[in-house]
Computed example of a mutant assay.
Amino acid sequence: MPPPRIPPLLHPYVSLAPPDSLTLLTSVLGASTNWLILRYILGAFDTKGKNGDEAESSRLASNGDVKVVLVSFLRDWDFWRTEARRSVGLDLTKLGVEGRFAFVDGLGELFLREDGVVPASASVTVSSSSPSGIPGRAPLAVTQNARGLSIRGKTQSALAQSSAEPSMKPKYIATLTSPDLAHVEQTIQSALSSASSSSPSSPPSRTLLILDDPSILLSATLTPVHAFLSSLLHIRTLAASSIISLPADSPLVHLTHTPTPLEREHANLVVGLGHTATRVVGLRLLDSGVARDVSGVLCVGRGGAWDGDDEESGRENGVNLEKELLYYVGGDGGVKVFERGAGTNAG
């Protein structure tokens, strides 16, 4: 019998978050959050509803008032579409057509104009000649401008094709073409609006916004972290609840005596979001090393903005807000979550 798409121990934490909440996901190299983000998306569209109520689930499904907008800076649309169908059985294309899901590509064209050409205002350009004996190989141009690096090695026909692609994209897929924060905010706002336009009667409190590693905007630009946090705060107000995934590897959050500007800014970003988050979910590797039947450790904790009534017991609506679990991601995309000592057969 295949394991459940959302393991029982994980289900209380990935159900649709309450309004005005922020969940911060942290990861390290070797313990990615992509499988967890897919479970959050599935949790929002869960057929059993937030509290396992089948009647409530039927109403949500028929009204279509649960909407998710995913903004990914590390993985493209094909990855999420394929993995969602393979590992959790979600058809993101169908949900997009229904107006219940929207995707913002923050990876493919972030530093390119819509026509795929590097802006002419670039200050530094280094080109390598085509290798002899390899016909048709276009030179590779690395261009640095005020906003970062752009690499292009396309032929003119490929550039013409890329310029025609945006008009062919479905309306539920948007693309970031600039790291400028105003452009990012406007694009995400448009995606949220498109995800809600198909059902005017749908309350906006059912919209979940997921940002998959927006820290690339901080590392690729000269934006101060306080301005970046302010922009993220404004973006969060556009949806009812938000999830932000960030890397939290030791070199990025545990500063040395002489930290680089990037290390310092990234650490301030993670700490700042941790203080404004309702819940913090961290993924890390086992302290004892690699294990055949364990992929990593999942730690759930309260964020700085948690304001529950039962603070001393550390529980909210019967759910333990501070929990440490082990997880195992199988080759088929299935996930098992279990207590220490219980083994992978526990689910």
Rank of each mutant, 00 (worst) to 15 (best):
S62R: 11
P18T: 11
L22Q: 09
G64I: 05
L25H: 12
N63I: 03
K67P: 02
L22T: 10
N63R: 14
G30I: 00
A55G: 12
T33P: 14
S58I: 08
K50T: 15
S32R: 09
S15D: 05
T23R: 11
L22A: 15
L42S: 10
L16K: 08
T26L: 06
G52K: 09
I37Q: 10
S32L: 01
N51I: 04
S15C: 09
T23N: 10
N63L: 13
W35Y: 15
L25A: 12
A17P: 15
S62P: 04
L16N: 04
L22N: 13
N34K: 10
L10D: 09
T26R: 11
D20L: 14
G43D: 04
E56Q: 12
F45Y: 15
V66A: 12
V69N: 04
V66G: 09
A44K: 00
Y40H: 14
G64R: 14
L25S: 12
Y13W: 06
V66N: 13
R59I: 11
L38S: 10
G30K: 01
S21T: 15
V68D: 07
L60F: 13
L10P: 08
G64D: 03
P18E: 15
D46E: 14
T26I: 03
L42M: 08
Y13H: 14
V68E: 03
S21F: 03
G64V: 05
W35T: 13
L10C: 05
F45T: 02
A17G: 14
V69W: 00
A44H: 01
R59D: 13
L22Y: 06
L24H: 02
I41V: 15
L25R: 01
A17D: 14
S57Q: 08
V66K: 06
K67T: 13
L38R: 07
A44D: 00
N34Q: 15
T47I: 11
A61R: 11
A61L: 05
W35I: 04
L22G: 15
F45D: 01
S27G: 08
D65V: 04
L9G: 11
S21M: 06
L16Q: 12
S32M: 01
S57E: 10
T33M: 08
